[in-house]
Structure formats: structure tokens, C-alpha cells
Nucleic acid binder design. Structure first.
Lengths: 221, 221
DNA sequence: ACAGCATAAACAGTATACGAATTTAAGGTC
DNA sequence: GACCTTAAATTCGTATACTGTTTATGCTGT
């Protein structure tokens, strides 16, 4: 018997494109048009429309008069989201610290090892993946579902931003170092320590972004 | 010339029902069916469907196999949202304190007067309205849009909960008193004081909820 | 009576079709 | 050759029709 709880097409398409967005497989040049995607999936426009409109309302896509595109985050919006992160993530991580399973800690350790390996290789994509793996791992252990979902909602939006900051060598070093420290404090399960470290983590991310942003602003045409 | 930026039917219906939900005009017995609403508006199912699905994804409605209904918030979810409120609202209010206009303060004062007048009249609906007016006023001044929208997203969901807690006389007194204090600290524009008071405000709301919840649990069948 | 099964009703999901709005392209004028 | 006008193409919003699934209803047999 098929154990599938009857997945609707619109949900399949929603998940598919949410994944593509979260994995950074879309560029700002991509214009997503419902009819085109519909013919790729051999379905009608409607489920595609449903999926894209949902993604747009959740902030993952921006709807324009000519198809859906990745949203253009302004400098201001990015700073605003960093403020949200400062407020939410330290507490969320502290809660997660008490709830992490041994499996969670194991995959955290694996991801941290991966992260450190990129110091030698300089593989930015791998560092980004490891970073995402670490984040997903501890986020999955956050017992407050509403809090976790709120964090997830804005994280996907600034994915591109985080990717961009990784081109700076200093930021890479800081990130890898913080990853290792995160493994330590999560393993200790001391909420207070986790809270402080995650706050430092977010602040470091903000500094990296500001550094990258000012550099880009200088060299911009 | 018509200055209307061409409002789509789906947006009209969305706004209409969001308003009804936020004003508490729907009960848990109401089942919203797209075909029914469509014939009321003399439109097809599609725009109604769009609006309801959007409301559902934002948490204002729950979609079942038999129409849309108000979502049943579990005790756990409500506590989770209170945790979010503790994390976000103090800071948001502090930011708002620096940005409040004189008009904002004037309408705040008006709403606080309204709130206090309900002590004599015992008009719970009016107290609720005044409370909402106060909230909307300071929220509208929060300069961090992302933060404000995040707060708005969950507030509508627990509207019914907040309404329910107002039937307790002690909670009413506490609320009115806190309203007056809020006017004072917002007028002083001291972010630190605002931050602390709003934290106390959220905590008081949580206590009121817990009191109402335990009472209800005792008298439940 | 009541459990189990068949049938009907209600509703959401999906398909197709049409119209309106807006951008892009083309052509014509000065 | 620049600018305005007009036509075409593109894409969204809405309407209508159909399909499948879930819930309710009623029937049958014990």
C-alpha cells in the first residue's frame, strides 16, 4: 500500500522551489513564470501559481509584473533582519542546547569538521554548506516551534547575503572558529554559554556583512 | 481621474476577512467555504480561494477538508508565542519610543483615557478596543519594519486569547494600570524604561492567560 | 438496535479558457 | 536620428468546468 499522504502538486512545487531558493540555486536574473514551470512539470498554471504566490507571501520570492524573482533586499532590510536575529537566535539556541540529541551533536561535529577542512582547501561553497548544516541542526532542536519557524522565515531571505560575505578571508576564519566554539558550548549544554556565543556569532555575521557591504560600495561603478 | 491602484478582488477579500478575524467577528463554529463567499461577492471561487489560502498560510485560518475555520491554538502554542513576545516587543517598543510623533502620543493618550473609563463602565469590548488601539499606535512607530511585521503576524492569532483573559477583573485592573504607565514612559521617550515596562506588560498578559486557562481547565466538563 | 458497507453530497485541487493590464517592439512623424 | 504613437506579445487575474477525496447518509444484514 502506498504510504503517501497524497501530496498535492502545489505542495511538491512549493517544496521544490523553496529548496532551490534555500540552496541558492537561483540568481537575481532568473524570472520564474508560472506557465513555463507548469509545462516543465506537465501540469496547469494553477498549482504553480499557488506555490509561487505562497513563496512570495512568505518573502522568498518577489512578484513583479513580469514573473517572480528573488527579492532585492535593501541594506536597511538586511540590518533590520540582523536586529531580529540578535533578539531571537541567542535564546532559541539556548533552548536548543537542552534539547539536542546525541545524533544532533554527532552531525554538528561532522559539520564543524567539514567547516574546518575548508581553511586548507578554501572551498567557499563547502564552507557555506557546512554552515547551513550547523544552523539546520541546532535549529531543528529548538523546542519552541513558533520561534523556530520565525527564524526560518527570514533566514532563507538573507541566504544570498551570507553567501556573499564568505568571500572575505577574515570572515571565513572567524566563522570556522565560531563553529568550533559552537560545538563546544552545545556539547556542554550550558544554555547561558550558548546564548552568549550565538549572540557573538550573529554580531560577527553582521560585521562581516558591513565590511563586505562597504567594500562593495567603494568598488561599485 | 481615479486614484485607485487597481485593487484585485482577492486582495479586497483578503483585507475584508483579515479585518473580520482581527475584530473577532468570527467564531470557531464558522466554516468559511469559498463557493459560499464567492457568491456573496458575486465573483468566482478563485480570488476567494487565493485570499483564504493566504490567510491560512499566515496562520489566521486553518484549512481543513471541510472549509476554513479559525485555528485552534494549543496551550503550548500560546506559551510559545508569549516567549516570542517577551523577546521582541520590549526592544520594538524601545525603538518606537524614539520615533513616536506627537500625533501618536495624542492618540495614545486618547486610547489610555478610553481604557481607564472602562473601570467604571466595565465595558470589556471597549477595553479590548482601547488595548488594540494602544498596541497599533506604538507598533506603527516601530522603525524596524521586519520586526514590526513579525510581531503583527502572531498578534492576530492570539487575539481571541487576549479577549478571553479580559473577563477577569484583576486582569482588567492590571491592564488599565499598565496602559497609563505606558503613556508615561512613551511620553518620556526613554527607551530603557519603555523596554522594561513592555516586558512587564507581556509578562502580565502571560499571567492573566495562565490564570484564565487554569480556571477554565477546572470548570471544564 | 447496531456494526459494516455502499452510496451520495460537499468540498478542495487541478485544468482550461478568456480578458485585462503592462511591457516590449515596431513603425511612423517631425 | 529622437520621440511619439500604435501594435504585438507576455503574463497575471478571474471565470468556469472537471476530478478526486473526504465526510455524511442511508441501507443491509445479523
Amino acid at each position: 500500500m502506498s504510504n503517501q499522504p497524497k501530496r498535492h502538486i502545489k505542495d511538491v512545487i512549493y517544496d521544490e522551489y523553496l529548496g532551490r531558493i534555500q540552496r541558492g540555486e537561483l540568481t537575481h536574473e532568473d524570472r520564474l513564470v508560472d506557465t513555463t514551470v507548469a509545462s516543465e512539470f506537465n501540469v496547469s498554471r494553477m498549482p504553480v501559481r499557488d506555490a509561487f504566490m505562497r513563496l512570495a507571501h512568505e518573502g522568498y520570492l518577489a512578484s513583479s509584473t513580469r514573473g517572480f524573482t528573488l527579492p532585492e533586499l535593501t541594506h536597511r532590510q538586511i540590518l533590520e533582519i540582523f536586529e531580529l536575529r540578535r533578539l531571537l537566535e541567542p535564546r532559541a539556541a539556548a533552548l536548543a542546547a537542552y534539547a539536542l540529541t546525541d545524533e544532533n551533536l554527532a552531525s554538528l561535529e561532522h559539520a564543524v569538521d567539514l567547516s574546518e577542512s575548508t581553511i586548507a582547501s578554501g572551498d567557499i561553497a563547502l564552507l557555506f554548506n557546512a554552515s547551513e548544516m550547523i544552523r539546520r541542526t541546532w535549529l531543528s532542536a529548538v523546542p519552541n516551534i513558533e520561534l523556530r519557524d520565525t527564524i526560518l522565515r527570514y533566514m532563507a531571505q538573507i541566504q544570498a547575503v551570507r553567501m556573499a560575505t564568505l568571500h572575505d578571508t577574515a570572515s571565513q576564519r572567524t566563522l570556522v572558529s565560531l563553529h568550533r566554539q559552537m560545538l563546544t558550548v552545545f556539547s556542554s549544554r550550558k544554555g547561558v554559554d550558548v546564548e552568549l556565543l550565538i549572540l557573538r556569532f550573529v554580531l560577527a555575521g553582521e560585521e562581516s556583512y558591513l565590511r563586505a557591504h562597504s567594500t562593495r560600495a567603494e568598488t561599485a561603478p
